[in-house]
Every structure is written in structure tokens, then in C-alpha cells.
Simulated scan of single mutants.
Amino acid sequence: MSLQKSALSVRENAYAPYSNFKVGAAIRSEGGTIYSGCNVENVAYPEGTCAEAGAIAAMVAAGETRLSEVYVIADSPHPVSPCGGCRQKLAEFGTGDVVVTMANLDGVEQKMTLADLMPGAFGEHHMENT
């Protein structure tokens, strides 16, 4: 299954009773396996989980820690971008040249690298003296 199909399919399982904004994400690990996740809302809004975080958690639970490609899709007039927190999470497991495809249900896609999405990202190199 492609990243696009995986993200589109898992999006249908999103739990979004408050916003009705369903998001699906799929990531390909360096090993080539696709992991997917969807947003899971909670009545206490800060306690929800983003789709990208769910996909990353599935990858890590399977024993992998490096991603090589990302696809995010939602029903939006414009391709949907990962939130700031998810950008940092993606940067934790991917290099700056990882391509992130952002899409909407109308088939509009926008591709950017993690470095483009998160210039100056906080990373391991900041922790070298600790």
C-alpha cells in the first residue's frame, strides 16, 4: 500500500467528535515499512493526539526509530501541515532532507522537506555539552 492510500485509509478511523477535522498520517521507516496514525481527540483538548504522533508511536513500538518519508492528509481547502509539535516529533526521527507530503481530499499536494518545515530545529547537536 502507498503512503497516500495508507494515510487516506487511516484518516477514516480518526476520533474527532469535537472538531470533525479528521487527519491521517503515514510514515515510511528507513526499513521500508509503512506506519500510520490518525488524530484522536479528547474533550479536554490538550489531551488529544495528532495523527503524526500516532504514526511515530507505531513505528517506535515496532522497534524502528528512523523515518524516511511522511504523508499527511485532511479535508481542508489547502494541504494540511503538521502542527509545530509534530514537526519537532518528526525532526526527532528524520533528517532534514526527509520529504513531507501534505495533502487534502481534493488531491492537492504540497511537498516540503523537514528542514523547510522546521528551520533551525532543536536537535541532538544542541545537547552535546550535557
Rank of each mutant, 00 (worst) to 15 (best):
E69A: 15
V72G: 00
G85M: 06
A53Y: 07
E128W: 03
A62I: 08
Y35M: 05
S9C: 00
A115G: 03
F21I: 07
T130W: 11
I73L: 01
S19C: 13
E41F: 14
L117R: 04
R66D: 08
S6L: 00
V80H: 00
Y35P: 01
M127C: 13
P77S: 06
G37R: 04
V100T: 04
M102F: 00
Y45Q: 14
T101A: 09
N129C: 12
L114W: 10
T49N: 11
T33Q: 12
S19A: 09
T95N: 10
N129G: 12
A26N: 02
A51T: 12
T113L: 11
V40S: 06
A103I: 09
I27V: 12
E69C: 06
Q4C: 01
A55G: 13
Y15C: 13
G123E: 08
Q4M: 08
M112Y: 10
N20F: 11
L67R: 09
G107R: 13
E12T: 04
V70H: 03
D97H: 10
I73P: 03
G84V: 01
S6D: 05
C38P: 06
A115E: 15
T49S: 11
A44H: 03
A58N: 12
H78V: 15
N39I: 05
M118A: 08
N104Y: 05
G94T: 05
Q110V: 10
P77W: 10
R28K: 15
A7M: 08
M112R: 12
S6N: 02
K22F: 11
T95Y: 00
G31W: 02
F21W: 11
G32I: 04
G120H: 02
A26T: 01
T130Q: 08
P119E: 06
M1A: 10
A25V: 13
G24E: 01
N42M: 07
G54L: 05
S36C: 14
T113Q: 03
A115C: 08
V99K: 13
H126I: 12
G94I: 00
T101L: 09
V108Y: 03
Y35G: 02
A44P: 01
F122K: 12
N42D: 15
L67E: 02
C83A: 07
A121C: 05
P82I: 04
N42I: 12
P119Q: 02
V43F: 15
G96S: 07
I27D: 02
L117D: 06
S76D: 10
E30G: 13
D116F: 02
Y18R: 06
N42R: 06
S68Q: 04
M59C: 13
G63H: 02
A44I: 15
N20L: 15
V23S: 04
V80Y: 07
E30N: 14
A51P: 14
R66T: 07
D97C: 02
M59E: 02
